[in-house]
């Protein structure tokens, strides 16, 4: 397994958010994490990345127990994130945003830039535009490009389709698939369960901080409970 969470309990102060979450992602796999508002999806990603520390349980990445490791360390080891709401550095240029994605890498970044520009040719023309002045769809490209600059082995994505027009939602899932096909493992958090399950290999359903359900994506699509709760049909 590339990533394995074992019985993770995460708190914000006294509030018990993640209650014994276990989850794993294999090398090159595309896994989705579904769940309603405030079910703890973002907290799961933050725990994986080390932005919040779990009170108990373990996070193992690529054979290394990183439960107590810094975020910098985890990124050096091959994690990257497209945060919820993208969180671009608005007053900085596209190039500078991409550079920040490669912050933990030393040496020549030209190849990394080329790969991002191949995936998003538009960004090559907008290198010196301030990220904050871009449209939602364009910002999405910068956010994904920024995460890819570190050439991660595991890409975490927190609701990439949020706030995008339907056509851009589809485009955004095409990008996820393209990244996946390039051999990068992806853990994508989504409320758009239909869309997520159509591209994912496997899925987890989080309910108030617990994994309520996990299965192959095609099986989850046929699951009655899930259909009632999330798929709206």
């Amino acid at each position: 397994m590339l990533l394995a969470l074992k019985d993770v309990n995460t708190y914000y102060g006294q509030i018990h958010i993640l209650q014994g979450v276990s989850l794993d992602v294999a090398e090159g796999e595309l896994v989705c994490l579904l769940g309603g508002n405030a079910s703890g999806k973002s907290t799961t990603l933050k725990t994986i990345l080390g932005l919040v520390a779990p009170r108990s349980g373990s996070v193992v990445f690529d054979g290394e127990d990183v439960t107590r490791a810094s975020t910098s360390r985890r990124i050096e080891r091959g994690m990257a994130i497209v945060p919820e709401n993208r969180r671009l550095f608005s007053p900085m240029t596209v190039t500078e945003n991409l550079e920040m994605g490669a912050y933990r890498r030393s040496g020549d970044l030209r190849a990394a830039f080329e790969r991002v520009y191949d995936l998003f040719p538009l960004l090559a023309d907008r290198r010196s535009q301030l990220a904050g002045t871009m449209s939602g769809g364009e910002q999405q490209m910068v956010a994904v490009g920024r995460a890819l600059m570190s050439e991660p082995r595991l890409l975490l994505m927190d609701e990439p389709s949020m706030g995008l027009a339907p056509i851009l939602v589809e485009r955004s899932f095409e990008i996820i698939q393209a990244v996946h096909e390039a051999g990068v493992a992806v853990l994508v958090v989504e409320q758009n369960a239909n869309m997520a399950l159509s591209v994912a290999d496997r899925g987890y359903v989080l309910q108030t901080g617990r994994i309520a359900l996990t299965d192959r994506a095609d099986a989850l699509r046929e699951n009655d409970d899930l259909r009632k709760a999330y798929l709206g049909r």
């Binding site: 990345l49 932005l51 910098s72 985890r74 990124i75 007053p91 920040m100 912050y103």
Partner: peptide, 13 residues
Amino acid sequence: AYDREAAAMMGID
């Protein structure tokens, strides 16, 4: 300065 948490998410110490 712009967004401390987002900076941390990029691996900036």
